[in-house]
């Protein structure tokens, strides 16, 4: 199957492309002084990491990343940037000493993490080398949905007592309530206050 072999080459090609874009724009966020450009680089970095999610077969997560993270959270963030975008805050300079210190620490941390990432053998084995990682046709969306309501379609062959259990219904509900609280809290905090009131503590 020459087709399969070539498709793997494409997987690598796209992985390298998206990985470089992701890391490159992340570094761009770090070294850019202008807050609006930082936001733009962040958008590109997160969007290309959505590409990595697609490559890893997590289509739903990738689309979710694009929709919620990039389309929602970052628009909100840019909204905040524009609300506070006065000339003196657009590019705040960081002292050189802090840069040196943080680069040293960051470089060490990066070396440590990279060493850890390539240390464990099991993470480097491509046991599925003969299959073609295309955009996966497995309907992960429905399986994720079922997991969120408490049924695990991928664990149906566990021991009979646990078969299909260990879903995420409870965390799902907690997250829903949490989001509601966040919504109310954010609206409360961001509301326009009357600054003259002295009685309120």
């Amino acid at each position: 199957m020459t087709l399969a072999v070539d498709a793997i080459a494409w997987h690598q090609f796209f992985f390298v492309m998206f990985a470089l874009l992701t890391c490159g724009f992340a570094v761009g966020v770090l070294f850019s002084g202008n807050i609006v450009r930082m936001a733009f680089y962040l958008v590109l970095s997160l969007a290309s990491s959505a590409g990595l999610f697609f490559l890893a077969g997590a289509e739903f997560v990738g689309a979710m990343q694009l929709m919620i993270y990039v389309g929602g959270t970052l628009v909100l963030l840019i909204f905040g940037v524009m609300l506070t975008a006065q000339d003196r805050f657009i590019s705040l300079k960081t002292p050189a000493g802090e840069w040196v210190l943080s680069l040293i620490i960051g470089g060490t941390l990066l070396a440590l993490l990279l060493a850890a990432a390539f240390r464990y053998e099991g993470w480097q084995q491509a046991e599925l080398g003969d299959t073609t990682p295309t955009s996966s046709q497995a309907d992960t969306t429905a399986r994720l949905g079922l997991s969120l309501v408490g049924v695990r379609p991928d664990k149906l062959d566990d021991s009979p007592r646990k078969a299909g259990m260990s879903g995420y219904l409870f965390p799902f509900i907690i997250v829903s309530v949490h989001l509601l609280v966040v919504l109310v809290g954010a609206a409360y905090m961001a509301r326009a206050k009357k600054r003259t009131t002295t009685t309120a503590r």
Binding site: Q12, A19, L52, L113, A117, W123, Q125
Partner: peptide
Amino acid sequence: VTVSHYLAVGAV
């Protein structure tokens, strides 16, 4: 491409 490569990107 293996898990390690994804981890490397995640680390960066």
